[in-house]
Structures are given as structure tokens and as C-alpha cells.
Amino acid sequence: MRILLTSDTYEPTINGVVTSLMNLQHGLKQLGHEVRILTLSESHTTYYREGVWYLGSLNSGTIYPGTRVLDTLARKPLKDLIRWRPEIVHSQSEFSTFILAKRIAHVVGAPLVHTYHTLYEDYTAYFSTNERIGRALAKLFSRIILAQTDSVIAPTSKIEHLLRSYGVDKPIEIIPSGIDLRKFSANSEKELLDAMKVRLGIPMENLVIVYVGRLAKEKNTAELIANFSSDRTDRTLLLVGDGPQRQQLEQQVASLGRKKQIIFAGMQNQEDIPFFYRLGNVFCSASTSETQGLSYVEALASGLPVLCRADACLDGLIQNEVNGWQYHSNEEYHQYLERAFSDATLLTKLSAQARFSSARYDRLTFAESVSTVYEQLIKARTQPYRILA
């Protein structure tokens, strides 16, 4: 199949949407499909490179940090992609590139699939001063966008139920995003990890709690820091990533007098992320704004038990006393963390089960499931291609 994937973000940006998109791209190529990408560039320049059209864009960080919007008519890229005649168009974002995805799909008569990655209800603070109105707008926006598609992919049943509650009546397939398991399950030399600990200022004997993700209000990272403030000094909280709340979180750490024990590693290259997981003994997150939580899967594949705030999107992924724990209160958080760190046998067992439980999230399995959706839509589509001038 000729498959066009569209997204407002792509590498070198690191986030869940980009990770899912790139793993789908690689998986589809492994299956023998021809894949092209349509995305926004990080400047005003439009260019094509290795199967990817990067469209000139403007910084829209005043709305949400790190975002961009299209600033070109994109005539040449559109003409090129329409002549290529994709058999399926699969959008990953609801804004600039969604408009183009819809146009291309309409002109060539291809089905339009959309993956719903972002829980906009948890981002209302960025676009509305009134939470109730913001949530209503998020629901209306999602319903309008998805009504223009032929099929929707939800990464978890939590999102499928949410979209149905919005009034979305399009077919919804539940397909969890996959990852490159080999990249995270590989072992690293002890000397390399020791050198990283020295560079980051992590004492060799310390147990390490690691978080990988965006430092933003909706990720609730402040809770991780607050929970750590009463911990012993032989533990380190390693925060990997960046975001709009970093300065505020650094001030929180300073006020607690924990600068040596709570370390901000900052944004890292995608290829280096697996090494940061391997520095940890346990992965922790307090977020409840995930549609799936790919970082949880990456942690499991790295052999890290996951300790996270309970969330419906994690049902079936994080199982108490099997590969980690879901906690409902700060008291439970401390209780579970102490169980993990006070029992080496239990920690080893949880680590082994973590690796085992990640196996079903392989990116090739992910691509096969999505490819099946494509094939069903193409088979059902009777509308002929429009004749182009």
C-alpha cells in the first residue's frame, strides 16, 4: 500500500505522538508498504527529504509551548502527494496537517484514518480561563474533527469510551501504539552507565527513581517531587525531559533543599533515552492525562517496574505486584515504593515480569494491526479516484 502519515510534529521533537508515528512508519515499512510523511518544519522553509515533506511553519508557543502552525499554501507538496496517489491517509494531529490530510484524501478518494493521541480536556488551562467551558470546547472540537474521518484509532479503551461520550459515531478501533522493543531491552555496559551517573551527579550506591516525559502541569510532575521530599538521602529522583513547567519545578526542588537528590537531566536525543531508563531501578509517573503512556511501555521493556498514579488507560498494562503498582494516594505511593526497595527478590521478580509484559507492544505487531484497518477501509471504499486536471 501507498500510505501517507501526517502530523504537526516529527523528529527531532520528542513526544508520544512522534514516538508512535515513527514506530508506525518503521513497522509499516517492515511489512513492505510505501510510506511518506507530511509534517511541519521547524522554520519558515518548506523542503523534502527522504520521503518526508516538511512544510514551513510559525511558532505558536503562546498557545501551547513547542507547537507550530502552517504558514504556507503548500502547493508543491500537495501536488506531489496527490500525484503519488496514497491509498490511505492517516493523520496524527488535529490542526494544520489535518486540514491537508483531509484535502488529499478527498481529492484522491482515499480513506482518512485518524489516531486520537491527545486528551484535550486536560489541557484546558492553555486555551480557556474557565475549566468547564474549556472542557466543553475540547469535546466539541474533538467531535467536529473526528466526524470528518472514515475511522478512528484509540490507543486504549479509556479513549474509546471517552470519544463515545463526546458523541463520536465513527468506527473506533482500539490499537495500542508499539515501540522498538529491541532498543529498550538491550543491556548496557556497566562502565557506560557508571560514567553517566558521574556526569549527572548520581551517587553509585543510590537507588534511582526515573521519570521520562514532558515537564508540564498536566503531567503532574510536582507530585513526584513532593512525594520524594520525605524520602531518604540514599535515593535519587531523575527527571528526563523538558517543558514549560521546568523552572517552576526547579524552584520547588530548591525550596525543599533537594537539589543533589532530584536531578533534571533535560531534553535528550531519542537514541539516548534507553540509557536513561537503564539508570533507574523503578519508573514513576503521577500523570492522569495520558491516552496510553508510551513511556510506561518503554520503562517495562527496559526491565523497570512501574509505580504510577492509577488511570484507566493503564488497566491491563500495569498490574499490582506483577510488573509494578498503580497508586491512589500518596500513602500508597510510599507503601509500594518501600516494598520495591526493601525486597531485592521482589524487585528482581517485578523487573522480569516488566520485560515479559511489554512483549505485546512490539512495533511490528502495532503496524500489522493498523495495516488491517487500512485494508478493511480500502476494501469497503467504492468511491473512484477523481480525475485530476
Rank of each mutant, 00 (worst) to 15 (best):
I3H: 01
L5D: 09
N15I: 05
N15C: 09
G16L: 06
V18Y: 12
Q25H: 13
L28M: 05
Q30N: 13
G32I: 05
L38S: 07
T39K: 14
H44V: 06
Y48A: 12
R49L: 14
W53E: 01
W53R: 08
L55C: 15
T62Y: 14
R68A: 10
T72G: 07
L78Q: 09
D80V: 03
R83L: 02
I88A: 13
V89S: 07
H90C: 08
Q92L: 06
E94M: 14
I99T: 15
H106F: 14
H106C: 12
V107Q: 15
A110M: 09
V113E: 09
V113F: 01
H114N: 05
H117A: 03
T118D: 03
A125W: 02
N130R: 07
G134I: 12
F141T: 06
I145A: 02
L146R: 08
T149P: 01
P155T: 03
P155I: 06
T156L: 05
T156A: 08
S157N: 05
E160P: 01
E160M: 13
R164S: 11
D169G: 07
E173H: 15
I179E: 09
F184H: 04
S185G: 01
E191P: 00
K197C: 12
V198G: 01
P203F: 00
N206K: 15
V210P: 03
V212W: 08
G213A: 07
A216H: 02
K219W: 06
T221C: 15
A222N: 13
I225D: 03
F228I: 07
S229T: 12
S230M: 12
S230C: 04
S230Y: 05
R232Q: 02
T236G: 02
L239V: 04
D242K: 11
Q245L: 11
Q245H: 12
R246C: 11
V253I: 04
A254C: 09
S255L: 09
K259E: 15
K259F: 04
I263A: 13
M267N: 05
E271H: 10
E271N: 08
D272W: 02
P274K: 06
Y277F: 15
L279W: 02
N281Q: 13
C284W: 07
S287Q: 05
E290G: 11
Y296A: 15
A301T: 02
A301W: 03
G303V: 00
D311G: 14
Q319S: 12
V322G: 00
N323H: 05
G324E: 04
N330V: 01
N330Q: 13
Y333H: 04
Q335G: 04
E338Q: 15
E338C: 10
S342F: 00
S351D: 03
R355C: 01
T365P: 01
F366V: 09
A367W: 05
E368A: 08
E368F: 01
S369T: 10
V373Y: 04
Y374D: 00
Y374G: 08
E375A: 15
K379H: 10
R381C: 13
A389I: 15
